[in-house]
Amino acid sequence: MGTFLENLVTGAALGSIYALISIGMTMVYGLLKILHVAHAGVYVFGALLGLLAFRLTGSILFAFPAAVLGCALMGYLLYRFMYRRVQDEKPLIPLIVGIGMFTAMGDAYRLAAGPYSISFEHGLAQTGIVLGTFHISFNQVLVIGSAAALLVLVWLMVNKTKTGLAWRASAQDREVAMGIGVNSNYMFGLNFMFGSALAGIAGVLVGLYYGAVNANMGEVWAYKVFVVMVLGGLGNVTGTVIAAYLLGLAETFIISSWGYFLPRDAIAFICMILVLILMPNGVMGKRKQV
C-alpha cells in the first residue's frame, strides 16, 4: 500500500512537470500549427536563470520571478525574430528551425554553465511527511502544489478572460479572428510569452525536485513533449494536461511493475507512433478547441 501511494505521488509529480512544459507547446500548436521544439530550450533557460537568481540572492523565492520574466522575454524574442519569419512556410521549415535553435541553445548553455550538473539545493529537500513506511518529500509537495495552482490559473486565463476568448478565437480560425479585430500577431506574441513563462517555472521546479540543474536537461523532454501533445490531441490544452498526468503515472507504474524493458523515451515514442497511426486525433479526441 505504501509503495502504491508513493508511486502515485511520484507519478503525479512527474505528470505535473510534463503538464507545465507541454502547455506552452500545445498553445503554440493550437494557434500557429507549429511544432515549437525550441520550447524545451526555454525551459532549461528558466532552470538556469532560477539557479542564478538563487545563487545571487540566496532565496528560492527570487528564482521563480527571475525565471518567469527571463523566459517570457526569451519566448517573445523567439517568436518575433525567428518563428514569425517562417510561420507561413511549410510546417517542416519551422520544425527544423526550432530543432536547430534548440540544439544551439543546449550547446550555448553547456558553454556557459559547464557540461555537468550543478547543485540546486534549497535546504528543505530532505524534509517531508512520514506515515509508517510511506514517505512524501517536501519537493514532491512543492511540485504537485505549484503545478495545481498554475493549472487553475491557466484555466482561468483561457476560459474567463477576454484575452482567453481572443486566444480561442485565433486558435479556431486565424483569418476570421483577424477579421473581427483580434490582432493575431499580438496574440501570438502573448501566447509565446505565457507558455514560456510556464516552462520557466517548470524548469525551476525540476531543478529543485532533483536538486540539480544541467545544461542538457531539456534533451529528453524536448521530444517527450511531442508525445504528451499527440496523446492529448494536438492543440487541446485540457487534453494535454490529462495526457501529461496519465503519462507520468503510466511511466511510474510500468517501471515499478516491470522495470525498464526499454528506456523511458523509447516507450513514450512507441506510444506516440501507435497513437499517430491508429488515432490521428489523439486519445482525448478533438471535439473542440478548449
Binding site: V86, I96, G100, T103, A104, M105, G106, A108
Partner: peptide, 16 residues
C-alpha cells in the same frame, strides 16, 4: 568545442 552550437545555428540561419 562549439560543434553543436555551429550545427544548430547553421540549421536556423540556412532554413530562415
Amino acid at each position: 568545442d562549439y560543434r553543436m552550437l555551429t550545427y544548430g545555428l547553421l540549421l536556423v540561419l540556412v532554413m530562415m
